[in-house]
Design a protein around this nucleic acid. Sequence first.
DNA 1: TAAGCGTGGCT
DNA 2: TAGCCAAGCTT
Length: 365
Amino acid sequence: MPRPADPAIPPRPDPSRPAAMSAPDPGALLAWYDRHQRRLPWRAEPGTRQDPYRVFLSEIMLQQTTVVTVAPYYAAFLARWPSVKALAAAPLEEVLSAWAGLGYYARARNLHACARAVVERHGGAFPDTEAALLELPGIGPYTAAAIASIAFERRAAAVDGNWERVLARLFAVEEALPRAKARLRALALTLLPETRHGDFAQAMMDLGATLCTPRKPACALCPWQGSCAAHAAGAPERYPVKAAKSVRPTRQGVAFLAVRADGAVLVRSRPPRGLLGGMSEVPSTDWVEGGPADPALAAPMALEWQPLNAAVGHVFSHFALELAIWRARAPALTPAPKGHRWVRPEGFDAEAFPSVMRKVLEYIG
DNA sequence: TAAGCGTGGCT
DNA sequence: TAGCCAAGCTT
């Protein structure tokens, strides 16, 4: 039961907020959103509710990935697998092949596993609560809240990187990410409106993506400028504070590019989990700092291997790779060694080649 | 809690 | 150029 403040005890000022600053009003953000929302392929027409499968598909693809990159993949997936049942019925290899180039391939494996779980556990209909969504593979706190709010109008805080940046600035949070995540989530819960939960989630993302950007935020256009502690302090770009990043090491390896007389290339599939799990690759040595001691020991078969005067460079999230190319010609009808297969260039699109392997394949010659 | 996990665009 | 950044999840 709330009681009136004791006039003898002045309210404690919020140290992150000057006394004259007003609290952020969710209604002001929603009014801004009504005028400035982005039209994106996975968004429903204003005033209508989006198909949960489309929200799910787009949210998984958008994890750590830009709108521009996702758009063509989203269209291709939706055309090929228009429903969660269709996706669940697809072979994993086809899903990985369609995902190739988008990165973070565990997302594709989990997307497929999640579709199957929705069919098997929920009869093909996505559960409509944050808690039930959180039980599904590949769906974490953000995605569960995003689907619950956007597809089902549940009151939930879909705190992504945009929300975190907006909140860190509004409240001038000095604690550094990622440690500050719990604090930012608590602040998010205080801002949730009583209506329009899906719109609010997307309004926060649009605000972060278009005005409250990492660099050079457009504070003059912001509906919350008068409520923002970072703006009041004259240093919006100082937030969110981030922990120092560790250095990225470089690993070296040798890729063995065997080209048969009919143009086919020797290929294999990577182990089902871990880096590039389940994806197709040109066989190679291990990728290690300092490089492999004796690359020849890792050759997939006995051929006249010729080191090329070229190397593929590629940057992963936690290491950089320098991949030397050894190439060899194999006679027609040469059988593939165990665990390998020959694939002609016409078949490349059906393979799940990640970007680094597409670079290697440029050297077929 | 922190590390592992892709890729491409931008500055 | 080399680092930063983008609608995070899993272990």
